[in-house]
Design a protein around this nucleic acid. Structure first.
Lengths: 226, 226
DNA sequence: GCCTAAGTTGATCGGCTTATCCACTTTGCA
DNA sequence: TGCAAAGTGGATAAGCCGATCAACTTAGGC
C-alpha cells in the first residue's frame, strides 16, 4: 500500500481522534464555512471563514489543506439530502412526476445554496465530489429515468447523463436571477423539461420574465455580490 | 437610425479625431484584446492585452477607462454578426427551422468565443451591451417567435424573453465541455428546444455524453484554463 | 503536576488583478 | 522649424487571493 496516514482528506481519517479543542474548532470552521458559502458562494476567502469561526487562518489550513478539501468536507454530507430527494422521488407513482419532482428538488437545493450553484457552474475543479455524487445518486436517477422511459413519457434517446446537465444549465439562471426573480428557475426548468415545442398542452407556471428582468440577468445589474 | 456618432463608448466623445499613432494603437489594442478574449475569456488582464498589442498598460487605460469600456467596444460590433444571423434565419421558410437555425447560430458564436460565453454567464456587469443587444436583435427574434407561434410549432406560452435565456443556459455547458466534447452543446440545445418529453420523434444529434464526460464537465477536470 | 506532541496564531509571502501617475516622446499645426 | 498638446511607457499603488511557517499555547497521558 502507499502512504496510509491520510489524515485530512480523501481516503479516511481515523488515524487519531482529534484533540478536544481541535475537534470543536473543526466543527466551528465547518459551520462558519457552510453558512458563508451558502449565502455568498464559493468565493469567500479563508480569512473570512476563519474570522467567522473565531479561529486563525492557519487553523483552517491545518484542518483542510486547501480549498478543495474544505469544500469537499462541506458538501459531501449535503449529498445525503440529494440522495434522500432522489429516493423520495422514486417512490412517486407517476413516472413523469417522479422525474420532475426530483429535478425540482435538485435545482431548489442549488437555489438555496449559492455554493452548490457555483459547484454546478464548474467553479471548483477536480474535487472528489462529482465522483461520489455520481456513485450515490446515479443509480437512483437511473431508475427514475428507466421507469419514465418504460412508461413512454420520457424520450428514449436521452440518458441520465443528459439529465445531469440540467442543474448545470439552470445554474446561471439561478445565479443571475437571484434577488430579481427568485422563482424564475421554476419556469425555465419546466420549459427545459417540457420543451419549447408546441403540442403538449401544459401551461407554464409563473409569467414570462419582463425584458428588464432579462436585461438584469444578463448583466447582473442589481443582483450584485455584496 | 438613431445616435449616429457614438464612436468610443457610452456618453460620446468624438471631440477630436485621435492622433494617428493613437488611432493605430487603439486598433492594435482592440485586435489583441479581441483575440485573447475570444480564446481565453474575459479573465485576461490588461497587462497581457497590452503586451500582446505591443503597448504599455497605461495606453490601454488611456483609451478605455476600465474593463467595461473595453469589453463594450469589443463586442458592440459583434452584434452585427448576431443581427445578420437573426435576419438570415428570419428568411428561412420553415418557421421552426428558422428558430432552430438562429439559436444554433447564437450558441455557436458563444462556443467559438470564450468572452461571449463569459458574458452570457453574467461575468461582466452593467455594460451597455445588453441594452443595445436587446434593441437590435430583439425585434428580429420577436418576428421569428411570432411566426413560429402563428404556425403552431412553438408553444404559445413562451416569449422571446424565454428564448433569450437559452444561450445563458448553454453557457456552462459550452464552457465546461470545451476541449472535452466541443459539440455537446448541439445535443443539449436540441434537447432544450425539443424537450425531454417523449412523443416527438426527432433523433437527437450526437451521442449521449459518457459518464466521464459529465464528470469532467462538472469539475472541469481536463478543460483547464492553461 | 509535568512534559511533549498536538494545536493555534497571525504576520507574511508571492502572485494575481485593476488602476494611477508623471517623466518622457511624438505629432502635427503655425 | 519649433513648440504645445496629445499620447506613451512602465514602475508602482492598493486589493484581493491562497497558502506557509516559526513562535507560542494547550491538552491530556504518565
Amino acid at each position: 500500500m502507499m502512504s496510509m496516514s491520510d489524515s485530512g482528506r480523501a481516503g479516511m481519517e481515523q488515524s487519531r481522534p482529534l484533540r478536544r479543542d481541535a475537534e470543536s474548532n473543526r466543527a466551528r470552521i465547518l459551520a462558519a464555512a457552510r453558512e458563508l458559502i451558502a449565502v455568498r458562494g464559493l468565493g469567500v476567502g479563508h480569512n473570512e471563514i476563519a474570522r467567522a469561526a473565531e479561529v486563525a487562518v492557519g487553523t483552517v489550513y491545518r484542518r483542510f489543506p486547501d480549498k478543495e478539501a474544505l469544500v469537499d468536507a462541506l458538501f459531501i454530507d449535503r449529498l445525503d439530502e440529494v440522495v434522500d430527494a432522489a429516493e423520495a422521488a422514486r417512490d412517486i407513482t407517476d413516472p413523469w412526476l417522479a422525474l420532475v419532482t426530483f429535478m425540482n428538488g435538485a435545482v431548489a437545493a442549488q437555489a438555496s445554496n449559492r455554493g452548490l450553484g457555483d459547484l454546478a457552474l464548474g467553479a471548483a475543479r477536480g474535487m472528489k465530489l462529482s465522483t461520489e455524487a455520481r456513485e450515490r445518486v446515479g443509480p437512483v436517477v437511473a431508475e427514475i429515468v428507466q421507469r419514465a422511459q418504460a412508461a413512454g413519457v420520457l424520450r428514449p434517446d436521452v440518458t441520465e447523463q443528459d439529465l445531469a446537465l440540467v442543474p448545470a444549465m439552470l445554474a446561471p439562471i439561478v445565479a443571475n436571477a437571484r434577488g430579481i426573480d427568485d422563482e424564475l428557475w421554476r419556469r425555465v426548468l419546466a420549459l427545459v423539461l417540457d420543451g419549447f415545442r408546441a403540442g403538449m398542452a401544459d401551461v407554464l407556471p409563473g409569467t414570462p420574465p419582463a425584458p428588464e428582468v432579462v436585461d438584469a440577468i444578463m448583466s447582473n445589474w442589481n443582483a450584485a455580490a455584496h
